[in-house]
Design a protein around this nucleic acid. Structure first.
Length: 477
RNA sequence: CGAGGAGUAGCGCAGUUUGGUAGCGCGCUUGGUUCGGGACCAAGAGGUCGUGGGUUCAAAUCCCGUCUCCUCGACCA
């Protein structure tokens, strides 16, 4: 019989050793492996398939919003990086620079893009002449490089994949509205596709993007109560337009600078969904992004008719648009159960002689770990389709409930510290002063994640003066 | 970048204190029996001990350098 019933212990304990749990899960489920260069990751097929699902869903939404895809070069002249003062200050420490090529020293060093505002600004300046050229809204799917001190697969890697959208508008109001509109697009995506509740809102000046007027963020609560920024949008005003001479002749004949905004979401989203839904057995993948939505495990595979029935079921499900996979490998059924549970497949169908004889199938849900055997084989497409839907809704509801239960209020620094120590998000008043924000960080190792625009607060949690905003504070990844 | 830990077969580890033939479990290959929660038997393959140097008759083991990974801080999608 089972030799190693404790196989689950191969994964570190999710409650007491969450960071190690995360590392164990991403490696053991073959989402990623480490590359030979510090901080780089190889995204393996199972992980990349999730990214492809994310790309497709998000890209559809961008296109529906009127954004076009393009591609800009990886290498950026260093002189571009220095044109916007705050931008260069923010990114300089983490830029990788190419100094040699073709066996010779380059006359001008080239930055490996950490983000593409500068090179895109340069190109936009060439393309924009008239108000008729606006708004200009392009997006690119690409890799970027940021030389980070500490790295972790998906969460923070030296090189990562993302999309970056860059738009120019004739007015600041339009550009800022677009930043908010894209933030809502991200939220809708996170909720519907990743089944992940998020908090969205404006960032404090301390947390905003280098060179932006306003930064908006989408924050999600991870299993350990820490926050993960999962997407951001930025309104730059005319900062970049002036640095790169993005000008247009307006309807009134006057030459004006455009207003720019940008937005990005990265492979970090994969880390976010792992740390939102995962449990002690490993991954729990939301059906919309799961590379395999249904795994079919034959029982007593060699028995007459079993494999045939499994294959027929796989074909039917595929035809119904469900990503089904028949595992006809030589491993024992028990081994397959555990393996696919670790890999987070939302639904497992066990099909053996007993099921086939009675015209039923045994169905296991990854989210609740419940197993039912009263599913009619003849209605598999409908039943499984509905179940996948239900699983997605349940994952969202569970995560949403957990997050709401763990948003607490604080009026003093001690309460705030106590709140984050318990793994909560803490909503508190803030006077708007940088010094108070810094002090909160020093005192509680918590940062302002987003400004909660829907709530009011009376007094600043730090200095006790009149609060200008209610802010969500949390420890963050 | 600061503090701590770790690199020995694909994976997990022992061996290092006290230098002396490279070990174990799982996995892998082949054949057979199995299959309703990580099956069993038999036979096999697989390692420049992260890497560079040094000490020594002799280094996985001692010394110096260096690279990578993990955890915790400071910085970030």
């Amino acid at each position: 019989m089972a030799k190693d019933l404790n196989f689950v212990s191969q994964i570190a304990d999710i409650e007491s050793d969450f960071p190690q749990w995360y590392t164990d899960v991403v490696l053991k489920t073959k989402l990623v492996d480490y590359g030979p260069v510090k901080g780089t990751m190889v995204i393996r097929p199972y992980g990349y398939a999730i990214w492809e699902r994310i790309q497709r869903e998000m890209d559809d939404r961008f296109k529906a919003a009127g954004v076009e895809n393009a591609y800009f070069p990886l290498l950026i002249p260093m002189s571009f990086m220095t044109k916007e003062a705050e931008h260069v200050e923010g990114f300089a420490p983490e830029v990788a620079v190419v100094t040699h090529a073709g066996g010779e020293k380059l006359s001008e060093p080239l930055a490996v893009r950490p983000t593409s505002e500068t090179i895109i600004g340069y190109m936009y300046a060439k393309w924009i002449e008239s108000w008729r050229d606006l708004p200009l809204r392009y997006n690119q799917w690409c890799n970027v490089m940021r030389w980070e001190k500490t790295t972790r697969p998906f969460l923070r890697t030296s090189e990562f994949l993302w999309q970056e959208g860059h738009s120019v508008f004739a007015s600041g109001e339009e550009a800022d509205a677009e930043a908010l509109r894209m933030l809502e697009l991200y939220r809708d995506f996170a909720e519907k596709i990743l089944c992940m509740p998020v908090l969205t809102g404006k960032k404090t000046d301390k947390e905003k993007f280098a060179g932006a007027i306003s930064t908006y963020g989408m924050e999600a609560m991870m299993h350990d109560g820490k926050s993960l920024q999962s997407g951001t949008t930025h309104y730059m005003g005319q900062n970049f337009a002036k640095a790169f001479n993005i000008q247009f002749t307006d309807k009134d004949g006057a030459l004006k600078h455009g207003y720019t905004m940008s937005y990005g979401a990265s492979t970090r989203l994969i880390g976010a969904l792992i740390m939102t839904h995962g449990d002690q057995r490993g991954l729990v993948l939301p059906p919309p992004v799961a590379p395999v939505q249904v795994v079919i495990v034959p029982v007593a595979m060699k028995k007459e008719g079993v494999l045939e029935a499994c294959k027929a079921l796989e074909e039917r499900l595929k035809k119904a648009g469900i990503r089904a996979l028949l595992d006809d490998s030589d491993n024992s059924p028990g081994w397959k159960f555990n393996e696919w549970e670790m890999k987070g497949v939302p639904v497992r169908i066990e099909l053996g002689p007993r099921d086939i004889e009675s015209g039923k199938m045994t169905v296991f849900r990854r989210d609740t770990l419940e197993k039912g055997d009263d599913y009619s084989l003849s209605e598999a497409e409908r039943a499984i389709g509905e179940l996948l839907q239900k699983i997605g809704e349940n994952l969202f509801a569970k995560a949403e409930k957990r997050m709401q239960e763990r948003i607490v209020e604080a009026e003093t620094l001690d309460e705030l510290l106590d709140g984050v120590n318990r793994g909560n998000f803490v909503r508190a008043g803030w006077c708007g002063e940088r010094s108070c924000e810094d002090k909160v960080k020093e005192f509680a190792q918590a940062t302002a994640r987003v400004i909660d625009g829907k709530r009011k607060a009376k007094t600043c949690v730090c200095c006790g003066k009149k609060a200008t905003h209610a802010v969500i504070f949390a420890r963050a990844y």
